[in-house]
Design a protein around this nucleic acid. Sequence first.
DNA 1: GCTTGACTCTGACGTTACGTAATAGCTCAC
DNA 2: GTGAGCTATTACGTAACGTCAGAGTCAAGC
Lengths: 247, 247
Amino acid sequence: MKVKEVADLVGISVRTLHHYDAIGLLVPDHTTEAGYRVYSPANLERLQQILFFRELGFPLKDIQAIVTRPTFDRLKALEQHQQMLRAKRHHLDELLQTVARTIQHAKGEIEMSTAEQFKGFDFSHNPYEQEARQRWGDEVVDASNAKLKAVTEQGKMQALQDEMNALYRDLAAVRHSDPASEAAQAAIGRWYLLLQRMGNYSLDAFKGLGQMYVDDVRFTQNIDQFGEGLAVFMRDAMAVYADHHSS
Amino acid sequence: MKVKEVADLVGISVRTLHHYDAIGLLVPDHTTEAGYRVYSPANLERLQQILFFRELGFPLKDIQAIVTRPTFDRLKALEQHQQMLRAKRHHLDELLQTVARTIQHAKGEIEMSTAEQFKGFDFSHNPYEQEARQRWGDEVVDASNAKLKAVTEQGKMQALQDEMNALYRDLAAVRHSDPASEAAQAAIGRWYLLLQRMGNYSLDAFKGLGQMYVDDVRFTQNIDQFGEGLAVFMRDAMAVYADHHSS
DNA sequence: GCTTGACTCTGACGTTACGTAATAGCTCAC
DNA sequence: GTGAGCTATTACGTAACGTCAGAGTCAAGC
């Protein structure tokens, strides 16, 4: 299939396809002698994934990092899309409630607080992240995302960021070893202590956090920057650490 | 309320509020001596409307034209938001179906066509416009939107565009008169003939189209560029014209 | 009164994801 | 062969903020 056929079928522009090719996000199967792009069924499958991620608000750069990873699991991603789309629909239901109540309010039928007027407008977080933030707090999530916000004391935050990055690198260096090994456990112990500095977390929570690193593509992507498969390794090492220290 | 309070309550950034003030979309009630923006409850009500339109994909420029119009009807707009949000949810349901079927397909449980893979991804039109296009065709809708696409024969399209604009101006000039007046009916007759050049439309359809000019803020906005209240006037004149010529 | 953290402002550059347009080559049915 | 439709690359422009710098304001606490 060539560009117009794909564009018409899918409902996107030819320009979008050019752009995606140019940034390496969706490279056509091959090109004709004339230089025409030819897309394969596999290309279309990739495009579907891209569009799901796009629909869910992921930046193209992030999408590219995710879908081009050798360990990218299409089925798992689809299941995650499903969950995120359900969350999106839940938010849309909230918006519908808000508009219905606003209509009633405008007709003088009910009272409505200012906060209620804006219920449902924030779509900025995916469900995993929301859950994680509720369970562990913003700082732990941001730490895992390696995206600490410049809150106050920039120097202090920078030092913490550097410390985290160093720890990620140490962990990446041993990620091909046994998660239960002495080196792995020493490094993951330091990770646990670092998180403890942000709050008191149970070992169960620590173990659950590790699982979330793997379950959510955003966490995975951010962590795997330091080395392919690091998120999986950390999950395993964190589980071992938690089990070992709870007995 | 000042910027941070509003931003936190609503879930948008302070920068957004600055931006909206700068472009005149949401100008705060007043400013303190220090120059701090102070937002009133009426400001927040306007903000809600803005966010609904934004949520539905309207460009800010369009939103501004709509909400700042003296004839802006908040209740009608809310009802329209509701309808459009319902349509959006319907599309989201389609996406959920698509992802569910894709999961089944990935597991080898069902067959799935390429087209099915992309069902639900196009959110680019509001429901009124979709309905109008189905009933009257693209050309009529674009003509009413005064946004003719450069399809072929650029010169020919330009001439048509000029003709349309002239007709809009004629209609705007008589919009304060009785829609049944001779001048109004002459002008609206020319509009009907212009549309007939694009296809055969019944008088009922013509009458319905006029109603749609008023029901959909996009149509209204585009038409009222030529004069405040022109869309309403055209609807009335079109109804008179249709009734008169069907008997 | 002074200090300090939080809040506020303006100005301005940068980012993202294309849309639009120009120019020119390619394809294929008539 | 012709011409309409399709294709390519190049490149500028746009919308809607995000980010940052530098400086002023506010109010609680000392």
